Amino acid sequence: MEFLLAIITGLLYAAGLYMMLRRSLVKLIIGLIIISNGANLLIFLLGRITKGHPPIIPGDSKIFTEIYADPVPQALILTAIVISFGLQSFAIILIKRAYQVVKTDDLDEMNTIEEDYK
Rank of each mutant, 00 (worst) to 15 (best):
L28I: 02
A15M: 08
Y18H: 11
I43R: 00
Y18R: 11
R23F: 04
I30Y: 07
L12Q: 13
P54G: 07
H53M: 13
K27M: 13
N37R: 01
I33C: 07
I43K: 02
I34S: 03
K27A: 07
A39G: 03
I49N: 09
L12K: 12
Y18E: 00
G52A: 03
L17V: 14
L28W: 12
K27L: 14
G38R: 11
S24N: 15
Y18K: 14
L25C: 10
R48V: 11
R23M: 11
L32R: 04
I43W: 07
M19W: 00
L28G: 13
R23A: 04
N37P: 00
M19T: 06
R22P: 02
P55A: 13
L32P: 06
K51D: 08
K51G: 07
I33K: 06
L42M: 10
L25F: 15
I49K: 02
K27V: 06
P54Y: 11
P55K: 04
M20W: 04
N40W: 03
Y18A: 14
G47D: 06
G31Q: 11
S36W: 08
M20L: 08
L11A: 05
L46W: 09
M20S: 07
L12G: 03
G16V: 05
Y18Q: 09
Y13Q: 10
S36F: 02
L42H: 11
P55R: 04
N37C: 12
L25E: 06
F44N: 07
G31P: 08
I43V: 15
L45K: 12
A39V: 05
L45R: 02
G31A: 10
L41D: 03
S24H: 14
L28A: 01
G38M: 03
I43M: 14
L12S: 11
I43T: 10
L11G: 08
L21V: 02
R48W: 12
A15Q: 00
P55Q: 04
M19G: 00
I43H: 05
M19A: 15
R23S: 12
L12M: 15
I29G: 13
I34G: 05
F44W: 14
R22K: 14
Y13I: 11
M19H: 08
S36T: 11
I33R: 08
L17R: 05
N40H: 09
L12Y: 10
L21S: 08
Y13E: 05
L46K: 05
L41G: 10
L28C: 02
I29P: 08
L21C: 10
N40A: 13
I30K: 06
S24Q: 10
F44L: 15
T50K: 01
K51Q: 05
Y18G: 04
L41S: 13
G52F: 06
L25A: 12
